[in-house]
């Protein structure tokens, strides 16, 4: 049984390290704030804002030029001026993330990049829902087998031809 617990201890440690790295990456790269938070905090650094493009608010300033529109979310709406390259994701009623800076003088969010909605919530849920039960299922099964071997040795049911590995 000793090796069994050491092995599973190792698995647990590796899983914990991967989990911590994942959370760090998530906070560094993919969190987004709502327009409501943007208006409230007025951050000066580059931020990611998640919202929905208001229907019919898109105004193009010439072909390939900047695009102005309204982005709303959590009950607040901000004006956005998008300076990056044309993106087909920029369309009415689309939920997306705009990456850029808040301009406190003009009260316009100046975005240089769009990014699709970070569906990491769904991805994380899918992986957690599969991998965690899988670990528990396997752990229980292996533990049961190890215990059964001990039990059977004690009851002297089974005399293997070769000595069983010490579990």
């Amino acid at each position: 049984m000793k090796w069994f617990y050491i092995r599973w201890g190792g698995v647990l440690i590796i899983a914990a390290i991967i989990g911590v790295l994942g959370i760090q990456r998530y906070y560094r790269d993919v969190t987004a704030i709502s327009p409501d938070r943007l208006l409230h905090d007025q951050p000066t650094q580059t931020v990611r804002v998640l919202g929905r493009v208001e229907a019919g608010s898109i105004v193009k300033e010439g072909e390939g030029g900047p695009v102005a529109f309204q982005l709303s979310g959590q009950g607040a709406t901000v004006s956005v001026r998008y300076l990056g390259e044309a993106s087909e994701n920029l369309r009415d009623l689309k939920t997306l993330v705009m990456v850029g800076k808040w301009n406190p003088t003009t009260h316009i969010f100046e975005a240089e990049k769009t990014s699709l909605m970070p569906n990491y919530g769904f991805v994380t849920a899918a992986y957690l829902i599969s991998l965690l039960p899988m670990g528990i299922f396997l752990f229980n099964m292996e533990r049961k087998v190890a215990l059964l071997y001990i039990l059977i040795k004690e009851e002297k049911v089974y005399q293997p031809e070769e000595p069983l590995e010490n579990r």
Partner: peptide, 19 residues
């Protein structure tokens, strides 16, 4: 791998029941 572990589990359970 799981199949190997689980086969042993079921086999041992039957063995124990038989005993």
């Amino acid at each position: 791998y799981m199949l190997m572990v689980r086969t042993q589990m079921l086999y041992l359970q039957h063995l124990l029941e038989a005993k």
